[in-house]
């Protein structure tokens, strides 16, 4: 029984079909990468799974339950957490307080929420930043705060939307190690969309490839990158079929 099952999910915006009958699964101890060129519909699919958008067709099952009709806040309470591409919390909350908001999903007690927040800040190596405001941190550490906040809600599955965007090679490397630890030590399943291919390749057990709203391939990372259709999707028709033109 898969932890997450996406079954024939479609999403229309007006006349535009952003996701077209996409199906895939994520197992309880799996890391799955969702890749595809710009505009392939990755973020849309993400938002459908997380309950941020209502789907136009199909179903989403999580932990044996049909979560298709649920709203995002209800989905989170079931144990499906997500991060946003742009994590902006400019206002009133310090870093530790931000993480506490995540912990408040499971407890009404401030003491317990604070303890949970401190635990995750420690685990993610940003314990020293607890009292600061988010805007006082560099981007790489802000992303860790976003991670800590989502993790503090005790998810079974974590959806990561382009967490590596805007990071340099060393920072991506650190993030890969961190996510591996989160997966191994905390037993979380991960579903990530990513532009940074090295990261997807290094982390994922399985990769799902989208193009123009359709699933075009699925399999182990090493296999998928050899798939001619995937190469064509990423590099474009003219490069694959018209090599002579560039020779």
């Amino acid at each position: 029984m898969a932890l997450l099952e996406v079954r024939e999910v479609s999403k229309d915006f007006g006349g535009l079909r952003a996701n077209d009958r996409i199906s895939f699964q994520v197992g309880a101890d799996e890391v799955v990468g969702l890749i595809g060129p710009n505009g392939a519909g990755k973020t849309t699919l993400f938002n459908c799974v997380a309950g941020y958008y209502p789907v136009s067709g199909g179903q989403v099952f999580f932990d044996g339950q049909d979560i298709t009709p649920l709203k995002d806040f209800q989905v989170c309470r079931l144990g499906l957490a997500r991060t946003f591409q742009i994590f902006q919390a400019s206002g009133d909350l310090s870093v530790a307080e931000n993480v506490m908001v995540g912990a408040f999903v499971r407890t009404g007690s401030r003491r317990k929420a604070r303890a949970k927040a401190e635990e995750w800040l420690e685990f993610l190596g940003i314990a020293d930043a607890g009292g600061l405001m988010l805007s006082e941190l560099p981007v790489a550490r802000q992303k860790r705060v976003a991670l800590a906040t989502a993790l503090a809600s005790d998810p079974k599955l974590l959806l990561l939307d382009e967490v590596a965007a805007g990071l340099n090679a060393a920072e991506v490397d650190g993030l890969v190690k961190l996510l591996t630890r989160i997966h191994r030590e905390k037993g979380l399943a991960l579903l990530l969309t990513e532009h940074v291919m090295e990261m997807v390749m290094a982390l994922s057990h399985r990769v799902v490839v989208l193009e123009s709203g359709r699933k075009i391939a699925e399999g182990e990372p090493a296999q998928v990158v050899k798939d001619p259709e995937v190469i064509r999707a990423y590099l474009g028709d003219h490069l694959v079929s018209g090599e002579n033109g560039h020779a």
Partner: peptide
């Protein structure tokens, strides 16, 4: 302001989308 609701409200003020993703019925 020390209660769960107090924290959640401030999260809502910051960003409603993020707040909802954290299980908050805005």
């Amino acid at each position: 302001r020390h209660s769960r609701l107090g924290y959640q409200l401030r999260a809502i003020k910051d960003n409603e989308d993020v707040a909802r993703s954290l299980g908050i019925n805005v």
